[in-house]
Simulated scan of single mutants.
Amino acid sequence: MKQSRVCSWLGVDYPIIQAPMAGVQDSALAIAVSEAGGLGSLPCAMLSVNDIANQVSLIKGSTSKPYNLNFFCHDTTEYNEVKHHQWRELLKPYFDEFSGHYDATIKASSRMPFSHDVADAIEGFVPPVISFHFGLPDAELLARIKRWGTKVLSSATTVEEALWLEENGVDGVIAQGLEAGGHRGMFLSKNISTQVGLVSLLPQIVDRVDVPVIAAGGISDARSINSALALGASAVQIGTSYLLCDEVKTSALHRAALKSQRASHTALTNVFTGRPARGIANRIMKDLGYMNENVPEFPYASMEMAQLKALAEQHGSDDFSSLWSGQNVSGCKEISAFELTRQFAEACDAVS
């Protein structure tokens, strides 16, 4: 692992990238993983421009190791009042259950795409790596990033997406298998039947592109890391296994679900944000159907669900919470992310 060419390319000791997990982490997790010799990642899609700058400042002040900044680059659609009214009517019985109501004055999305304003805020830091979800930013923005000498990664959920990313200038492709938790990075199609598991996806992408390929989805131990590397991956990206670590801000309800038998049942759903994402199955997913055609467009769909989630969690219920998780929680440990990263690396060295 230590001699991997991608390690030299990224400037890390081990070909281990911590998956960015918006909503449950800040710079602390990224710092711990980078200090351990992996590539720590900071999810920026749910942060304001000022918060992004502050978090990157914390990373730069705490480690001299490389790090990754992750952004969404989705197209923003117009807010559809009719669609949201219908959605609120569907959710009203749940609000009534907790004697609560929806605040309709809130019409701002909590997830923003990468922009020149964000680029202005981070340019001075010269981030070593930037990764994207949902494709790539426009050519002008991408060219601006590359002028900094920053390496650019992006997620592909199909061979076609991987080829598109390579043709449009990405430096590395993250092959996101169907097992992965959180949002699917799919951007060329909305059809979830196109999504396949990592063992099928990874070798196909490796055979078709010339850039390094990072494997993501279901990776939790030495066996799965070595299997991914044997299938041609240059590195692995691990997310779910970090969700119980000391540096992560996973809620008590989410942690309890991850440690329970419930974690064995995850599913893709669009009910929380309007885009397919994998999480532990709960009441709202089952009641409304995992993929519901009435859900408003991403990213605005999260406005109603965020309020319902907050209301229910005040009553100790995770029935309406987005319990993001991959299909394999066996690697989750309640230890520091630094120690977990080292355990992954040492275990792989021992069997490689």
Rank of each mutant, 00 (worst) to 15 (best):
residue 3 Q to R: 06
residue 7 C to S: 13
residue 8 S to A: 12
residue 10 L to A: 05
residue 13 D to Q: 13
residue 14 Y to K: 08
residue 20 P to W: 07
residue 23 G to Y: 08
residue 26 D to S: 14
residue 32 A to T: 05
residue 34 S to E: 04
residue 39 L to H: 05
residue 44 C to G: 09
residue 48 S to L: 02
residue 49 V to D: 08
residue 55 Q to I: 07
residue 58 L to V: 11
residue 59 I to A: 03
residue 60 K to E: 11
residue 61 G to N: 14
residue 65 K to E: 01
residue 65 K to F: 06
residue 71 F to W: 02
residue 78 E to W: 02
residue 79 Y to R: 10
residue 79 Y to A: 10
residue 87 W to Q: 12
residue 88 R to G: 14
residue 91 L to S: 01
residue 101 H to D: 12
residue 103 D to K: 12
residue 125 F to M: 02
residue 132 F to D: 07
residue 134 F to V: 08
residue 135 G to I: 05
residue 136 L to A: 06
residue 136 L to F: 04
residue 140 E to N: 14
residue 148 W to V: 15
residue 152 V to D: 01
residue 160 E to Q: 15
residue 161 E to R: 08
residue 164 W to L: 02
residue 166 E to H: 10
residue 172 G to H: 00
residue 174 I to K: 01
residue 174 I to L: 00
residue 177 G to W: 03
residue 181 G to R: 07
residue 181 G to C: 07
residue 181 G to E: 03
residue 187 F to Q: 06
residue 189 S to F: 04
residue 190 K to S: 13
residue 194 T to K: 10
residue 197 G to E: 13
residue 197 G to Y: 06
residue 200 S to V: 01
residue 201 L to M: 04
residue 207 D to F: 07
residue 210 D to V: 10
residue 212 P to M: 03
residue 214 I to A: 05
residue 215 A to D: 11
residue 227 S to L: 11
residue 228 A to Q: 11
residue 228 A to Y: 02
residue 233 A to P: 08
residue 235 A to Q: 07
residue 236 V to F: 00
residue 236 V to G: 06
residue 238 I to L: 09
residue 241 S to A: 15
residue 253 L to Q: 08
residue 255 R to Q: 13
residue 259 K to M: 15
residue 260 S to E: 03
residue 264 S to Q: 09
residue 266 T to R: 02
residue 267 A to P: 00
residue 271 V to F: 01
residue 273 T to W: 04
residue 277 A to D: 02
residue 296 P to L: 13
residue 310 A to K: 11
residue 311 L to G: 05
residue 311 L to N: 07
residue 313 E to G: 10
residue 313 E to C: 12
residue 315 H to A: 14
residue 315 H to G: 05
residue 317 S to V: 04
residue 320 F to Q: 08
residue 327 Q to V: 14
residue 327 Q to K: 07
residue 333 K to V: 10
residue 338 F to Y: 15
residue 340 L to F: 03
residue 341 T to H: 08
residue 341 T to K: 06
residue 342 R to C: 05
residue 345 A to W: 04
residue 349 D to G: 00
